[in-house]
């Protein structure tokens, strides 16, 4: 029983990181109907840059975290400018954007490899002072709690931002209809750039939390989360922010429960993706999808 409770808690921790990664992913999709396949590479660079700031520049993680998040956001602007904006007028921009984002992902990964080496690296000991609590037989560390809190905070702030603020509403307007937004006086290109900035900043933040959680960072760490992130946003409903949060948690939980029940981690990914498959059979538009089906 304790093992199960422990795994549920672990699922919550990793699920919150998946959720944070996925909200950024789904945000761009919701606005542009484009999958930004370089999102995982931004995730990686966010983590590695934070590590560099802590290790080489000697910063505290409390300063390195926001700086690396900001850096990831700037990478998003670059992505938009290089990989998406030049193609926007094309009739096939969804597909061509997808391809050019893959190219950017490869470039980012190569840059990460060149700057930080191919080996797996970790944050220096003592980056975050860790307390360990034992509650009813479940072990929780302050690091884990911090990760959940930061991820939750960022997701709540994002949700409020999108719901309440002027720019948030403009982002939703562009997501609904670029033409309508344009006629209302929205600077559509500016809003798209802001969307990339926010999306990538969240992706970078997720990368830092992931690196702290697993105590390992590598130039190819994005690959492990890339497919999962895609699964999470499909699970939650493409373009839905609450869906991505919920999907992230569901995915994290199904992963750890698989490990708890089968006793090995061999089946972890298989079961998680089977859950995805099963949910899509019942709800083709995802948990919170709007049921809008795209014509072929």
């Amino acid at each position: 029983m304790n093992l199960l409770a422990q795994q549920l808690v672990n699922g919550l921790f990793i699920g919150s990181v998946y959720g944070l990664f996925a909200v950024g992913y789904t945000l761009v999709f919701g606005v542009l109907d484009i999958l930004n396949l370089a999102h995982a590479a931004v995730f990686t660079l966010g983590g590695l840059v934070a590590l560099w700031l802590v290790q080489t520049a000697g910063m505290s993680i409390w300063l390195a975290f926001p700086l690396a998040t900001l850096f990831a956001g700037l990478l998003g602007l670059l992505l938009n400018q290089v990989a998406f904006a030049p193609l926007r007028k094309r009739a096939d921009s969804q597909f061509s954007g997808l391809i050019s984002s893959i190219a950017m992902a490869i470039i980012f990964e190569a840059v990460a490899m060149g700057l930080f080496g191919a080996r797996s690296v970790r944050f220096p000991q003592g980056t975050v002072s860790v307390h360990i609590w034992h509650i009813a037989g479940v072990t929780i560390t302050s690091l884990q709690v911090g990760i959940v809190l930061v991820a939750a905070l960022l997701m709540v702030v994002l949700t409020l931002f999108i719901q309440r603020t002027r720019i948030g509403k403009a982002i939703r307007a562009v997501a609904e209809s670029e033409r309508a937004a344009m006629l209302l006086g929205v600077n559509v290109n500016g809003i798209i750039a802001s969307t990339f900035l926010i999306s990538s900043a969240l992706g970078g933040a997720a990368g830092i939390l992931y690196g702290l959680y697993f105590d390992a960072l590598a130039p190819d760490m994005g690959r492990s989360i890339e497919l999962k992130g895609l699964a999470v946003i499909i699970l939650g409903g493409m373009g839905s922010i609450p869906g991505a949060i919920l999907g992230g948690l569901a995915f994290g939980l199904s992963e750890v429960l698989t490990v708890a029940i089968t006793g090995t981690s061999n089946l972890r990914d298989a079961v998680a993706f089977t859950v995805l498959f099963a949910i899509l059979l019942i709800r083709p538009s995802g948990l919170l999808g709007r049921g809008k089906m795209r014509e072929a």
Binding site: R172, A173, E176, S177, A180, L184, V186
Partner: peptide, 14 residues
């Protein structure tokens, strides 16, 4: 071209 997924009030705000 009303913004279908936004409320009447939000449309007016836009």
């Amino acid at each position: 071209l009303v913004l279908a997924g936004m409320t009447v009030r939000e449309n007016l705000e836009m």
